[in-house]
Design a protein around this nucleic acid. Structure first.
Length: 832
RNA sequence: GCGGAUAUGCCGGAGUGGUCAAACGGGACAGACUCAAAAUCUGUUGGCUUAGUGCCUACAAAGGUUCGAAUCCUUUUAUCCGCACCA
């Protein structure tokens, strides 16, 4: 394609200082050398902790989503810093994790090497964006000095009975070659591989008893300022429900079941135990063994996703349960639709009043017994689906005639009196499975001794470091290093072997925010004074995808560490902001294969970091998804160019009440908007303030206030201009302007509106009557001044020669007597 | 299936009972500057219309509340997100 380079060059020249690397480099260097963003605990200022969720350092470097979310954090940190807080704004790297391991295998290097390079690359780009981190506090989770404390927490959890090992049905991702936590299974697929069905395996694994904290996790949500949807999602994830536990006798043993419908207990016609239930075989009679095994085998070959779509199926176990109310014997089935680790893994089935039970009963021809009768009379033979609504109890002995809601209460009380059951609360939340059969994670500090069994590695022997020499692709990599794996038992000194599983990557990120308070401490996890000074996080920022993963774990860890006595608070993040997702300009997800990826570095090179930052936060409300727009960033770039040119050639004028009014009003509005992350609106105010600057008389102080307002978005340009103004300080450390409400003059604003509407009127008429050269404006005498002040502007905006007359001026030029039409606030006009 | 969110002009996106044909940005168009510009400045950008702010049609669709609705309520439709056999 042919291009006219002379044109491009000239355009670029004019504004080249904006994207000039020189200025960006200059301030990066100055900030770094002067350590102005490094903070300590001795400050007299009030502390404020701003945190972005730390990134996983991928080899690809920063993507546009990073550029966006970290800019939000930086803007907020700069804002709070300027407002006079002692702001902790640290950064680190969540550098352990499967992607590093896989990427390293792919390119044939060691994960440690790969990670080191990636971090270096990230740092360079982060500095280019102008983010004001306290680099002295950087942490990296792959550093043994960091993960030592993961292991320490693990030991503490073991001590307190929170970490435990159990065999159960677990989720297995064949692509990760590892098990997954419940939170990491999304719609039956692996969270890392959306195309990969999760399989179910029965394995013995390490768990954290997060369910102990279910109630506190739920209640704590009331004390934090989070988006409603984030709270709701966590609430649903925890899934509290009230119900009744009822004991059924099977083969002489009591088996508890959980139900929210004790009112239907007289309608139980069978029981269903989960096919994944660990004690299933206890219920299976010899006669039924073959059938059950066949059924289980069939289930084994299907993934969790398929299981969810499958029809309800089951097989008779051969055992019978005794209904505690009726003493009736009902068959116990094993079924594919009962969740093994919710409640007790067994349910009472009431086909008349539960749709799932109904379908199952129909399939296997199990009787249906109606015990809730609504006004429109039900009969089993006419039913095509379960009746789940309200009604009066029937076929329920002494409880007949009760409304079913009442009956719930009565039956529960009756069961409790007879010691056959009790009211209980249940949660959907499952214990956190933390074992991973992969290399690049925190080693679990456990030794299996031939004699003593499970033995924790003593605290003094921490960290258990990852050995460098392992083989990948042959099962669990740690098991390939025999020298590392074989270890003496810390208890008896006998032969033992190390746990070869590592911990879930989410373990590392569950307490990192505390380590920032004391990142170099090698004697303790952190100094409790320091941690309690800085934490909790005052403003946390990160994507919505972490709501039911990271943010649950983070809250759990915080509560646990509080229980250890290390912390004085139990909510890690007081305020939380979720940013939207940046899509490609076509509205699609950015992906390499589609070729629609926007690289932050390219944008910095083309438009400068300031433009990129400002554009990202001003295109839409930052909590909403938006599409990238090349034209948009060009517009932002032009805007910054104008600002730059304006301030470079700035000459201070006398203080003007009009400018002061506008400035103070803008300060007030912008401050509120920034506080609420409404940067799109804040930027509009900045733009319109600049418009008024462009056609008004601006004094130096007002000009400087403007630069401060802009600084949080455009740190490089504003530092540079601040210096050009003759200041020796950093604008980064200047005070955020405070609005002087007394200087806000609403009357001036109204006058401006009056001028606007006059100009509109003139233009409106011009459009109708065609081109004219002159306009005569007739105003009410007391308004004359207002319009005379604006005479030049009116001329400019209408392209006419303007004369202004007072209506009572006897010598006014008014050939058609238009001046009679003049009203207060609405001058008359005559065009010719 | 359940739960949540959203729906505004050519586009992105403000606006939550009157001051709204609707901020701001982008685009488009016209004019100024210029040899020329994608730079800068000025204006126009739902329709009709008058030397003047009026009328009509509009804020997903249909109803409703109200003196008055983009804004409140109900239903419907579409899109997005979360959970998904939780008994």
């Amino acid at each position: 394609m042919e291009m006219d380079f002379s044109k491009i060059d000239r355009g670029k020249q004019e504004v080249s200082h904006l994207n000039s690397e020189a200025i960006q480099k200059k301030w990066q260097k100055k900030w770094e050398e002067s350590k102005i963003f490094e903070v300590g605990e001795s400050s007299k200022k009030k502390k404020f902790y701003v945190l972005d969720m730390f990134p996983y350092p991928s080899g690809a470097g920063l993507h546009i989503g990073h550029a966006f979310v970290f800019s939000l954090g930086d803007i907020f940190a700069r804002f709070k810093r300027m407002q006079g807080f002692n702001v902790l704004y640290p950064i680190g790297y969540d550098s352990l994790g499967l992607p590093a391991e896989n990427a390293a295998i792919k390119v044939g290097t060691h994960p440690a090497e790969y990670t080191k390079k990636s971090i270096a690359n990230f740092m360079k780009q982060q500095k280019a964006m102008g983010w004001s981190y306290d680099w002295s506090r950087m942490v990296s989770t792959s550093d043994p000095k960091y993960y030592k404390w993961d292991q320490w927490i693990f030991l503490k959890m073991l001590e307190k009975g929170i970490a435990y090992r159990k065999k159960s049905a677990v989720n297995w991702c064949p692509k990760c070659q590892s098990v997954l936590a419940n939170e990491q299974v999304i719609g039956g697929k692996c969270w890392r591989h959306e195309d990969c069905d999760v399989e179910i395996k029965h394995l013995e694994q390490w768990f954290f008893k997060i369910t102990n904290y279910a109630e506190r996790l739920l209640n704590g949500l009331e004390n934090v300022d989070w988006p409603e949807r984030a709270k709701l999602m966590q609430k649903n994830w925890i899934g509290k429900s009230h119900g009744t536990e009822i004991l059924f006798e099977i083969n002489g043993n009591k088996w508890p079941i959980f139900t929210t419908r004790p009112d239907t207990i007289f309608g139980v016609t069978f029981m269903v135990v989960s096919a994944q239930h660990p004690r299933l075989m206890e219920l299976v009679t010899d006669k039924q063994k073959k059938d059950v095994e066949k059924f289980l085998k069939k289930l084994k070959s299907v993934s969790e996703k398929e299981l969810a779509d499958m029809e309800k199926e089951g097989v008779f176990t051969g055992s019978y349960a005794i209904n505690p109310m009726t003493k009736e014997k009902v068959p116990v089935w094993a079924g594919n639709f009962v969740v093994a680790d919710y409640g007790s893994g067994m349910v009472m089935a009431v086909p008349a009043h539960d749709q799932r039970d109904f379908e199952f009963a129909e399939k296997y021809e199990i009787p249906v017994k109606i015990v809730i009768q609504p006004d429109e009379h039900l009969a089993p033979e006419r039913m095509t689906e379960a009746y789940t609504g309200d009604g009066k109890l029937v076929n329920s002995e002494n409880f007949d005639g009760l409304h079913n809601e009442e009956a719930k209460e009565h039956i529960s009380i009756y069961l409790k009196e007879k010691k056959l059951g009790k009211k209980v609360v249940n949660y959907k939340l499952r214990d956190w499975l933390i074992s991973r059969q992969r290399y690049w994670g925190t080693p679990i500090p456990i030794i299996y001794c031939d004699k003593c069994g499970i033995v924790p590695v003593p605290e003094k022997d921490l960290p258990v470091e990852l050995p460098k020499e392992v083989e990948f692709g042959k099962g669990n990599p740690l098991a390939t290093n025999k020298k590392w794996m074989n270890a003496k038992c810390p208890k008896c000194g006998g032969n033992g072997r190390r746990e070869t599983d590592t911990m879930d990557t989410f373990v590392n990120s569950s307490w990192y925010y505390l380590r920032y308070s004391d990142p170099k401490n090698d004697r303790k996890i952190f100094d409790t004074k320091k941690a309690n000074y800085w934490a909790p996080i005052d403003q946390y920022i990160g994507g919505p995808e972490h709501i039911t993963m990271h943010l649950i774990y983070l809250r759990f860890y915080t509560k646990f560490l509080k229980d250890l006595g290390l912390l004085k608070f139990e909510e890690p993040a007081l305020r939380y902001f979720t940013q939207g997702i940046v899509h490609a300009s076509d509205g699609e997800k950015m992906s390499k294969s589609k070729g629609n990826v926007i690289e932050p570095l390219d944008m910095i090179n083309k438009y400068g970091a300031d433009s990129l930052r400002l554009f990202l936060v001003s295109i839409a409300s930052p909590d909403k998804d938006f599409n990238w727009d090349d034209k948009g960033i060009q517009g932002t770039f032009n805007f910054i160019s104008k600002i730059y040119n304006y301030f470079e050639n700035f000459e201070s004028a006398k203080v003007s009440p009009k400018i002061e009014s506008k400035l103070n009003k803008a300060i007030k509005e912008i401050t509120d908007y920034v506080q609420d992350f409404k940067h799109n609106l804040a930027v509009i105010k900045i733009r319109s303030l600049f418009e008024s600057f462009a056609d008004g008389d601006v004094d130096k102080k007002s000009a400087e206030a403007f630069l401060k307002l802009l600084h949080i978005y455009c740190p490089f340009a504003t530092e540079e201009l601040w210096e050009k103004f003759g200041n020796k300080t950093f604008i980064s450390l200047e005070k955020w302007p405070v609005a002087d409400e007394k200087k806000i003059n609403e009357k001036l604003e109204e006058q401006e509106k009056a001028i606007d509407s006059l100009v509109n009127d003139i233009n409106n008429v011009l459009r109708i009557v065609g081109e004219k050269n002159k306009v005569s404006i007739y105003v009410i005498p007391k308004e004359k001044e207002i319009y005379e002040d604006a005479i030049e502007m009116i001329g400019k905006r209408t392209n006419l020669e303007v004369s202004i007359y007072s209506v009572n001026d006897k010598d006014k030029y008014d050939p058609e007597g238009k001046s009679k039409k003049a009203k207060l606030g609405k001058p008359a006009i005559y065009l010719e």
